[in-house]
Computed example of a mutant assay.
Amino acid sequence: MGTAGHLAQTSVLSFVERWPWYHALTPELRSLVIQTATERVADAGEYIARAGAPCADWYGLMQGFLQMYVIGTRGSETTLYCLREGEWGGEGSLLKGEPRRYDLRALTPVRLCTIPLKTFELLRNSSIEFNQFLCEIMNARMGIFVGMLEASRLLGPEMRVARTLMMLADGQASDAQEISISQHQLALMCGLSRQRVNMALNTLKQSGLVRCERRWGFVSVHAPRLRNYVTLPN
């Protein structure tokens, strides 16, 4: 059995019940969500969805990290977003009703709650609270996209690495957090070489923003300090 098989168990029901939009639904719609939602488990490196394929599901990440990325004509990868535990993704492609424009790959072992398109559409056509939730998460994601674009075009490698780490971390946390990610994976997300990422991490480490456990592939980030670092004028 792959690593994904050893992930801690959180039921689809308990995951869905976390969200206020679910409790705002009618009993019939709540029942439909539970009846049609399914669990999917994947190992690190496994594709969840491929670019060009029809969009069939909305994804809720119960555990792990997912990478949304595109591949250039020369084979280089550009990360669009990294979905972290407790987030939903894929709604943009469902709303546009077009083939997916990016690949979706598990960066770590993951567990997903998947809600099919038909249920997603019914919720969108029936619930104001559900639509408000979609607006909130898409607006938040757009802010991250803008920040990443700015970092890739205008800022140095330290800021690009810092912003990527903040995308993976809980931005509202008040203490240090441990993120399980290799420098190779971080380099893919930042669009930098592994050597440049290593140099950037060393600089951030000297500033007390991160701590690296290279033997085990962990990066520990001090969320409040890192948040201040990426939001202060440069």
Rank of each mutant, 00 (worst) to 15 (best):
L188V: 03
G92S: 04
I34A: 09
A24Y: 15
M167P: 06
Q132C: 07
G208K: 13
R124N: 00
L209H: 15
P27A: 05
M68R: 06
T108W: 09
V219W: 10
I71K: 13
R74Y: 10
L25A: 00
I128F: 14
V219P: 02
L66V: 11
A24D: 15
E129N: 00
G147E: 12
L61M: 10
A176P: 03
T164I: 00
G97R: 13
A44L: 03
R124Q: 14
T38G: 00
Q183L: 08
M68G: 09
L32A: 06
C135Q: 10
G156K: 13
D175A: 12
A200Q: 04
N198E: 15
C190I: 06
R196P: 03
I34R: 15
E85Y: 14
P99S: 07
E121K: 05
F133Y: 11
I71H: 01
S220Y: 10
A173P: 08
F218D: 05
C190T: 15
W19L: 15
E85R: 14
A42G: 06
R111C: 01
E121N: 14
G97L: 00
R160N: 03
N125T: 09
G143F: 02
N228P: 00
Q183E: 07
P54F: 11
A24L: 05
L104W: 14
P20V: 02
R194C: 05
G89D: 13
E17S: 07
T203D: 11
H184K: 10
S11Y: 14
L66Y: 08
D175H: 15
L209Q: 12
R74I: 03
H222L: 01
E178V: 12
Q35C: 00
Q132F: 06
R30A: 00
S126D: 05
R141Q: 11
G45D: 09
Y229P: 05
I137N: 06
N125Y: 09
G143L: 06
P224E: 01
D43S: 10
L7Y: 06
T3V: 01
A44F: 02
S180A: 08
R215N: 10
L186I: 08
M1N: 14
L13T: 14
P109N: 11
